[in-house]
Amino acid sequence: MRVPILSLGEVLVASIQDALTDRGWRQLQADLLAQAGRRPPPGSRRKTAPRGVVIDLSTMDVMDSYATRSLDGIARMLALRGAETVVVGIQPGVAFAMAQLGLGLASAGTAVDLEAGLALLAEQVRGDGRHHGA
């Protein structure tokens, strides 16, 4: 199963639909990394490669240590490609279990839902522009 990735302006949105297998995570990683660094074709209105990625976990009912580690790794890799990652929609029970396991997502921002995540990314991207090099 492949996670569909939507492109919204400068932001990529990946909505994980169901419990993803380990292979699924690796595929998602490859797909996101490929798209995050890709410049738009000549003549498009958008001139830059995607600056942000939102990963929506609102329908995930389990995030075990492997999935969390994969996700954090993806965020770190995307940062190397110049894109910020925001993880949205982690459900209360999932957040609780992740905290109990001692798992964090140090490399990604978090927001309660897609809307809040997009707003956060927009601010981050603007903020980066203002304090260039910070």
Binding site: D61, V62, M63, D64, S65, Y66, Q91, P92, G93, V94, F96, A97, Q100, L101
Partner: peptide, 17 residues
């Protein structure tokens, strides 16, 4: 409870892996 269900599923996932 919902939280317990998630904890069980997560523990199963860890042990299965």
């Amino acid at each position: 409870s919902e939280t317990d269900l998630t904890m069980i599923a997560t523990a199963v996932s860890e042990i299965a892996r």
